[in-house]
Design a protein around this nucleic acid. Structure first.
Lengths: 224, 224
DNA sequence: AAAATAAATGAACATTCATTCATTTACAAT
DNA sequence: ATTGTAAATGAATGAATGTTCATTTATTTT
């Protein structure tokens, strides 16, 4: 029974920032989360055993069940926590961002930065959707839609103001988010490009994608 | 030993189009492929057992080993076959496509069409990369790079001709392919949009993304 | 039709799986 | 310091895992 209490509290108080959790129990729960995230990201949820997680934590398998009811609960916890953290991070971004900047650029740069920083959590949340039991899937999907609606609103507003030209804001949202979310699959630190360069390149792509350029039959020979 | 022979022949002669393979053995091998593809796409490689595949085929588990040496071999076969079919399909597309059309548009429409038609194979080839043993992974990755280079060449050529404005053809390739490959995750037949409409929308996005529009600080109020 | 080979069976193999539990150890509050 | 509770152990549960194999049944080839 105390387990349920613990999990609920973890969701209310996401664990990623408050590094030193109070009690011993919270501390190991956090180590379990970290170990599971690492292993799930590398090998996939279905391919990772509770024994592996326990081994990574440095504990016997049975001990995991003091903190999570089931393996599925660990996955659910990781994914819901990630979505909550992502949306919370966007909210604080909004507070600090200059309102003079193009909101699409703000979003693009935020999304790239966040997804490169938290590559593991992003990857797991993206790949393991089908391993969620139906109810957990619905919860995560709801958060995902909430996040997508942020960009949809930016696009719709920009289109209404005439700053962007967009056929279908929802489809454009999915297109842009898929484009941006693909970055962590190939980006490597120390590769050919810095994070800032990647930000710049993708921001340019995104802004052009919603620009007025009609892309009819004329080929744009004329330089700006 | 004959098993190895069989697999090699299957790779030389991809099995997706030649519906009725000659012998009984080839026939069941094909049913195994189909069953595995369906199950891997739905539940993921690691979560699908050989017994499930056998059940779907309507055969005992041991019978699978007359056609594939291991479970891993089924996955490798599916992914390599898919990549070969994809590239072959592009080659025939090139023969039939009007050379007057913008090559980026040709590629975009082809990619979307193919990826919506073969959603299962695409999904498996995309999601199960990490479940490939190192050697198989390298084989599949090589094919993937080969496919990406098609778009990279189109972009580089267009940029050289001044028809496109592109900072980095390789990065733009990844961005566009990620954008396009994301479609099957949300597109559903009978949904709000037809395939043709999706093709049109994404083609417009892709063409604008490589257009000259500088996206500086001026907001593009002016209509074309 | 007979001989040779391919394909399928059904039972078994040793491992590994997620989870449970009585018990011991470590911690927190009094 | 003592007491109550939280956390970890270590062993066990039954079920499921990929794969093997001697044998039987189909399908080719001669």
């Amino acid at each position: 029974m105390f387990i349920y209490f613990c999990i609920v509290e973890d969701l209310v108080n996401p664990s990623d920032l408050t590094k030193p959790p109070t009690s011993k129990g919270m501390q190991t729960a956090d180590r379990v989360r970290r170990a599971a995230l690492k292993l799930f990201a590398r090998y996939g949820y279905a391919a990772v055993s509770m024994r592996q997680i326990a081994g990574e934590v440095g504990v016997q398998p049975g001990a995991l069940y003091n903190h999570f009811r089931t393996k599925q609960d660990i996955l659910k916890d990781l994914m819901l926590t990630h979505m909550a953290d992502l949306i919370a991070a966007w909210d604080t971004e909004l507070e600090h961002a200059a309102s003079t900047c193009d909101p699409l650029e703000t979003f693009t740069r935020f999304h790239i930065r966040y997804h490169l920083e938290r590559a593991d959590a992003v990857f797991v949340s993206y790949m393991e959707l089908r391993n969620l039991e139906p109810e957990n899937f619905r919860s995560v999907e709801a958060e995902r839609r909430r996040y997508e609606s942020i960009l949809t609103n930016i696009l719709a507003q920009g289109a209404a103001d005439g700053r962007y030209v967009i056929d279908d804001p929802k489809v454009t949202t999915r297109a842009l988010i898929a484009m941006l979310t693909g970055i962590p699959t190939w980006f490597r630190n120390g590769g050919g490009l810095s994070r800032a360069e990647v930000e710049d390149l993708y921001t340019a792509l995104a802004r052009k994608a919603v620009s007025a350029h009609p892309a009819g039959k004329e080929t744009g020979e004329r330089m700006a």
